[in-house]
Simulated scan of single mutants.
Amino acid sequence: MTEPALQQQGLSAPALRGELRLNEPLADYTSWRVGGPAQRLYRPADAQDLARFLSRLDADEPVFWLGLGSNLLISDAGLPGTIIHTQGCLNGISQLSDQAIRAEAGASCAKIARVASRLGLVGAEFLAGIPGTMGGALAMNAGAWGGETWPLVRCVRTIDRQGQIREREQAEFRFGYRQLKGPEGEWFLSADLVLQPGDTQAAQARIRELLDRRAATQPTGLPSCGSVFRNPAGDHAARLIEASGLKGKRLGGAEVSQKHANFIINLGDAKARDIAALIDLVQDVVERSSGIRLQPEVRRLGAFP
Score class of each variant (00 low, 15 high):
62 P>Y: 12
93 I>A: 01
196 Q>K: 06
45 A>E: 08
281 L>F: 15
279 I>R: 06
183 P>R: 13
103 A>Q: 04
150 W>Y: 05
8 Q>S: 14
222 L>N: 02
270 A>K: 02
68 L>R: 15
271 K>A: 11
283 Q>F: 10
191 A>P: 01
18 G>P: 07
107 A>L: 05
218 Q>G: 00
121 L>D: 03
123 G>N: 01
236 H>M: 05
296 P>V: 12
176 G>S: 14
37 P>M: 13
277 A>I: 04
186 E>I: 14
111 K>E: 03
224 S>D: 02
284 D>N: 11
98 D>I: 12
132 G>L: 14
180 L>R: 13
65 W>G: 15
153 V>D: 02
17 R>S: 09
220 T>N: 06
10 G>Y: 10
91 N>A: 14
143 G>F: 07
173 F>D: 03
172 E>D: 14
210 L>M: 15
62 P>F: 09
104 E>N: 04
293 R>Y: 13
244 S>E: 01
5 A>C: 09
20 L>E: 05
183 P>M: 05
289 S>D: 08
213 R>D: 00
251 L>M: 15
271 K>I: 04
88 G>Y: 08
126 F>L: 00
237 A>T: 11
237 A>F: 05
224 S>I: 02
3 E>M: 04
221 G>V: 03
172 E>W: 11
180 L>P: 09
169 E>C: 05
132 G>N: 13
146 G>E: 09
107 A>D: 06
83 I>M: 10
213 R>A: 03
248 G>P: 03
268 G>N: 08
250 R>N: 04
154 R>L: 11
304 F>T: 10
72 L>K: 07
98 D>N: 09
216 A>N: 02
95 Q>R: 15
60 D>Q: 10
78 G>K: 15
56 R>T: 12
137 A>P: 04
213 R>M: 01
72 L>W: 06
253 G>I: 02
223 P>K: 00
70 S>T: 09
12 S>C: 11
37 P>L: 05
299 R>N: 11
202 A>I: 10
138 L>Q: 04
98 D>M: 09
269 D>T: 14
42 Y>R: 04
185 G>V: 12
233 A>D: 05
259 K>P: 00
194 V>W: 03
256 V>C: 11
250 R>P: 01
265 I>E: 02
285 V>I: 15
194 V>A: 12
143 G>V: 03
165 I>S: 10
263 F>I: 12
115 V>L: 04
272 A>G: 08
103 A>V: 04
277 A>C: 07
269 D>R: 08
204 Q>V: 00
56 R>C: 13
179 Q>V: 07
199 D>F: 03
50 L>T: 01
150 W>A: 08
180 L>C: 14
123 G>D: 01
202 A>D: 07
25 P>G: 11
185 G>L: 10
26 L>Q: 03
70 S>F: 09
256 V>Y: 08
20 L>T: 07
32 W>M: 12
273 R>E: 15
267 L>I: 02
79 L>V: 06
129 G>K: 00
218 Q>I: 00
304 F>W: 07
120 G>F: 04
274 D>R: 14
236 H>D: 00
282 V>I: 13
213 R>E: 01
204 Q>G: 01
196 Q>F: 05
122 V>Q: 09
304 F>R: 09
175 F>G: 13
